[in-house]
């Protein structure tokens, strides 16, 4: 019964995006997956929600700047379990071109558990959809 329910539930992942000091490039690509008819992410049952309390899949962009770190950690704590984290772009994964800067405290997996990485600067919308599908697979095992 529980298995059946989680099989049904996995088709409704709500997305929440955290901008951890990103340059906005990846955020624009994320917005295209929702707003541009070509990459309609709603087909998968996804929906971008405004509140962290409604989220299932967290999409993090940006290299985690020193100023934003505490806020990102707090936001992450507010997301109810079960949740899956996806790092979008090279910045949260490794720091990218900002690596070793005094203003950067990343990579982000030092602080919060990341499940899927989608590198790219920025990644293509199709690659982001790939990452979301990968995240849904992981999410199903946790439901």
């Amino acid at each position: 019964m529980t298995k059946l329910l989680s099989k049904i539930a996995k088709r409704s992942p709500w997305l929440y995006r955290i901008n951890a000091g990103s340059c906005n490039g990846c955020d624009v690509e994320l917005a295209t997956t929702a707003c541009i008819p070509r990459y309609d992410v709603e087909r998968l049952g996804c929906k971008y929600c405004g509140s962290p309390k409604h989220a299932d899949i967290v999409l993090i962009t940006g290299p985690l700047t020193a100023r934003v770190r505490e806020k990102v950690l707090r936001l992450y704590e507010e997301i109810p379990d079960p949740k899956v984290t996806v790092a979008i772009g090279v910045c949260p994964i490794s720091g990218g071109v900002f690596r070793d800067s005094y203003a950067i405290t990343g990579p982000i997996d030092n602080y919060i558990p990341v499940d899927v990485n989608v590198p790219g600067c920025p990644p293509r919308p199709q690659a982001i959809i790939d990452g979301i599908i990968e995240a849904i697979k992981i999410w199903e095992t946790r439901l």
Binding site: I93, D109, P113, V114, D115, V116, N117, V118, P119, G120, P123, R124, Q126, A127, I128, D130, G131, I133, E134, I138
Partner: peptide, 14 residues
């Protein structure tokens, strides 16, 4: 090739 999505365990093997 733009298929860059991978899991965390493969991060350093990618």
């Amino acid at each position: 090739d733009y298929h860059t999505a991978h899991r965390q365990e493969d991060k350093y093997r990618y």
